[in-house]
Simulated scan of single mutants.
Amino acid sequence: MSSEVGPFDPGPDGNDTHLVLENAHGQLSLWPAWRAVPPGWSARFGPAPYDACVRLVDAAWR
Rank of each mutant, 00 (worst) to 15 (best):
residue 9 D to L: 07
residue 35 R to L: 14
residue 30 L to K: 07
residue 3 S to W: 09
residue 38 P to R: 02
residue 41 W to Q: 00
residue 6 G to A: 04
residue 50 Y to W: 14
residue 43 A to S: 15
residue 49 P to L: 05
residue 6 G to C: 05
residue 6 G to I: 03
residue 31 W to Y: 12
residue 32 P to K: 04
residue 7 P to L: 09
residue 33 A to W: 09
residue 36 A to K: 11
residue 61 W to H: 13
residue 40 G to A: 12
residue 44 R to Q: 10
residue 37 V to D: 06
residue 46 G to C: 06
residue 25 H to C: 11
residue 32 P to E: 05
residue 8 F to I: 00
residue 56 L to G: 04
residue 24 A to L: 11
residue 15 N to H: 14
residue 21 L to K: 04
residue 2 S to Q: 02
residue 22 E to F: 10
residue 11 G to E: 08
residue 34 W to M: 15
residue 18 H to I: 13
residue 3 S to I: 14
residue 61 W to R: 13
residue 58 D to W: 00
residue 43 A to E: 12
residue 9 D to A: 09
residue 35 R to T: 11
residue 48 A to L: 02
residue 12 P to I: 01
residue 4 E to P: 05
residue 33 A to Y: 10
residue 32 P to D: 08
residue 18 H to T: 14
residue 1 M to C: 06
residue 22 E to D: 10
residue 60 A to D: 08
residue 26 G to E: 04
residue 61 W to A: 15
residue 21 L to C: 06
residue 62 R to I: 03
residue 6 G to Q: 04
residue 10 P to E: 02
residue 11 G to Y: 02
residue 59 A to N: 04
residue 45 F to M: 08
residue 52 A to C: 08
residue 6 G to M: 03
residue 47 P to I: 05
residue 55 R to K: 13
residue 34 W to I: 11
residue 48 A to R: 05
residue 18 H to P: 10
residue 23 N to Q: 06
residue 4 E to W: 09
residue 57 V to Q: 00
residue 36 A to S: 15
residue 58 D to Y: 07
residue 26 G to T: 03
residue 18 H to G: 01
residue 9 D to I: 00
residue 61 W to S: 15
residue 39 P to T: 14
residue 5 V to Q: 14
residue 1 M to E: 09
residue 45 F to P: 04
residue 58 D to V: 00
residue 8 F to W: 14
residue 54 V to F: 00
residue 41 W to F: 10
residue 4 E to G: 10
residue 29 S to F: 01
residue 24 A to Y: 06
residue 25 H to R: 14
residue 38 P to F: 01
residue 16 D to R: 11
residue 49 P to Q: 02
residue 29 S to I: 03
residue 3 S to E: 11
residue 47 P to W: 03
residue 20 V to Q: 02
residue 39 P to L: 10
residue 1 M to W: 06
residue 29 S to T: 00
residue 9 D to F: 08
residue 31 W to E: 01
residue 53 C to I: 15
residue 60 A to M: 04
residue 18 H to C: 01
residue 4 E to H: 11
residue 46 G to L: 07
residue 2 S to R: 09
residue 40 G to D: 10
residue 12 P to T: 07
residue 13 D to Y: 06
residue 36 A to W: 02
residue 7 P to W: 11
residue 33 A to D: 05
residue 40 G to T: 14
residue 60 A to P: 03
residue 33 A to R: 13
residue 39 P to I: 14
residue 45 F to C: 02
residue 62 R to F: 05
residue 32 P to Y: 10
residue 2 S to H: 03
residue 22 E to N: 09
residue 29 S to Y: 09
residue 28 L to T: 02
residue 52 A to M: 08
residue 41 W to T: 01
residue 42 S to G: 09
residue 35 R to V: 08
residue 29 S to M: 12
residue 13 D to R: 14
residue 56 L to N: 04
residue 18 H to Q: 08
residue 28 L to N: 02
residue 10 P to L: 03
residue 42 S to L: 07
residue 8 F to A: 06
residue 32 P to G: 12
residue 27 Q to H: 15
residue 9 D to E: 11
residue 44 R to I: 02
